[in-house]
Structure formats: structure tokens, C-alpha cells
Amino acid sequence: MKNILSTLILFFAIVCQVNAQTKKGFDLSGATIPIVEIKDGGPPRDGIPSIDAPKFLSVSQAGIAEQDRILGVYHNGIAKAYPINILNFHEIVNDFFEGHPVVVTYCPLCGSGIAFDAEINGERKTFGVSGLLYNSDVLLYDRETESLWSQLKKESVSGEMKGRSLVKIATANTTWGKWKENHPETLILSEETGFGRDYSRNPYPGYAQSAKIYFEVAEMDDSYHPKEMVVGLEINGMHKAYPFSELAKSDEPEIEDVFQDQKLSIRFDEDSQSAEIRDDEGNIIPTVMNFWFAWYAFYPETDVFKF
């Protein structure tokens, strides 16, 4: 009897250990982030469905308001706008720019929109929403290897691709009016996504204004409102945040800064609540607009621009 009891205890211990290293069917053994900090976001894997066959409209066909927010991508000579009200329901668009694969990602909980080159080691990766979160941020997964990828870390945290990095493509989180003014030839993602969603409804009402966050994060800092929008910049592995409340203090159309020995020009547009950073040759540097709490959770060592 004693031997049977010992065997059962050992069996259940092994089962618990296996379950602790598996969530929503993803193998987390050897993950580069603490497994206990990987949270269940609620929906199952692909419960938030990615858009894998996006359709686009011309400017003349678009039916959204000038002040509606979009995530804009200009790549390989093509401009496309992805309305935030669509991204709120899908979070991932697997797309192509002149035949080159690009994945457009958006995490409503972190306010973070990032586009990545989806060709890794010469092979296209298609991404889905895992239903898991790390530091309140979406964990993507690629369908080819089922590896998990952290959006704001820009790298795979588990699976066959663990440790591989994603290459960012410059994006603009701005208004539709501002984007089409700068890119009159732009295309815009159609609401004909193949899914029955009411895109006029915000599934996160009041969230961007509230100081509350839905999921625990590793690090917090109260220097700014948790949902203060910041531009997050990375150069040579070092990070800096440019809070909008600081940028708004300037009366100049461009603000000069130096970070990691690089001269930078920050262009902040208060009307569209958007910003971009250029190097001293005028090239746009890929950055990420996101909430202060999210940027700090991932990069607590970050420098902060103060006017």
C-alpha cells in the first residue's frame, strides 16, 4: 500500500510538472522568460483570430473618419493603413509588401503596434495569437514551429525558434487624416475580414484612460500615468522613452536629442498625437508607441527624455 501511494504521489508530481511547462498546448520548457509570469489572457489559442488574407481599399473607398487612429506602414515603396478598431479584434495581420512577408501586430493592452519582417532565415513565418501574455503584452506564435514570440521583446521566448530576434519595420500610430496627408496613395485595410465583428465597437472601453491594468507586470514606475503614451527607442541595445507629455512642452516642430552618440530629431504632432524619430541623415528610425507601464515593464533600465 505504501509503495502504491508513493507511486501515485510521484505520478501526480510529474503530471503537475508537465502541466506547469505547458500552457494552451505550447511547450514552455526552457523558456527564456519566467513561466510563472506567462499569463492566460482568457481567449483560447486563435480565439482572437489573425487576419491571414487581408483585403484593402483605396483612399477614395475608405469610410473612416479623419481622426480615427490607424497603424501605418510604409515599406518597399508601398503605404498601408491598418485601422486600430480592426486591430483591436485581431491583433495580427499576416501581409505582403511587394511579395515580401510582413506581420503587423497590435496589443490593445499595451497600446503597442509593431510591424516585423516575417521572413526568418529565408523562410516565411505566419503568426497567430497564442492567448498568452507576458508583462500584459501579447505573445505571438508562428504556425510553422509553434514557437512563442514576445512582441515588445521582439524575440522568440520558447520553442524551436527560441532566442531568434524579429526585425522591426517603421510604423506610425497616427490618425487616418495625418497618414493619408503624408501618403495620399495609401491603401487601407478593409473591414471585410471574413469575421463577424462589430468594428464600430471598442472592446476595451475606457481602458486607455484608466490607471488600472488588467494583468500583473514585473516592474512598475509611477513617474507617469500608466497609460501615458511614449515613443520607445532602442539603439545599440540601450533604451529610451519619449513621453508625449514631455514632447508637448516644446513649441518647436522638431526637438533635438542625442542618445548613444547619435543625433536625433523628434517630430511630435500634437493634433494627431503621434511622433517619429529620425537620425541625422533624416531617416526614420523604427520605434514603438506604447503605454508607459508596458515600456517600463520590459525595459526598467530605460532612459527617459525630459524637456
Rank of each mutant, 00 (worst) to 15 (best):
F12G: 07
C16S: 15
Q21E: 15
K23Q: 14
K24S: 07
S29N: 15
G30K: 14
P34E: 04
E37N: 13
K39H: 15
D40R: 13
G42M: 08
P43I: 12
P44A: 14
G47H: 04
D52F: 00
F56S: 09
S60D: 10
A62R: 04
I64S: 11
Q67D: 14
D68C: 11
D68V: 06
L71S: 06
K80G: 03
P83L: 07
N88E: 11
F89N: 12
H90L: 06
E91N: 12
N94Q: 09
F97N: 02
E98A: 13
E98K: 15
G99F: 07
V102S: 01
Y106M: 12
P108Y: 02
G113Y: 02
A115R: 02
G122R: 13
R124M: 11
L133G: 01
Y134T: 12
Y134F: 13
S136E: 02
D137I: 09
V138N: 06
L139A: 02
L140A: 05
Y141N: 15
D142Y: 00
D142C: 07
R143N: 10
E144N: 08
E146T: 14
S150Q: 06
E160Q: 11
S165L: 11
L166W: 00
I169S: 03
I169R: 00
I169E: 00
T171Q: 00
W179C: 03
N182E: 14
N182C: 08
P184E: 04
E185Q: 13
T193I: 10
R197W: 03
S200K: 07
R201S: 10
N202P: 06
P203W: 03
Y204A: 10
A208C: 07
A211W: 11
V217W: 00
D221M: 07
P226E: 03
E234P: 00
Y242H: 05
P243C: 14
P243Q: 04
S245K: 11
L247V: 10
A248L: 13
I255L: 07
D257G: 07
K263G: 13
L264S: 01
S272H: 04
S274C: 09
D279H: 10
E281L: 14
G282Y: 06
I284S: 04
I285C: 07
V288P: 00
M289Q: 15
Y296C: 04
Y296S: 03
A297D: 01
A297N: 05
Y299C: 11
Y299R: 10
Y299W: 05
P300I: 07
P300V: 10
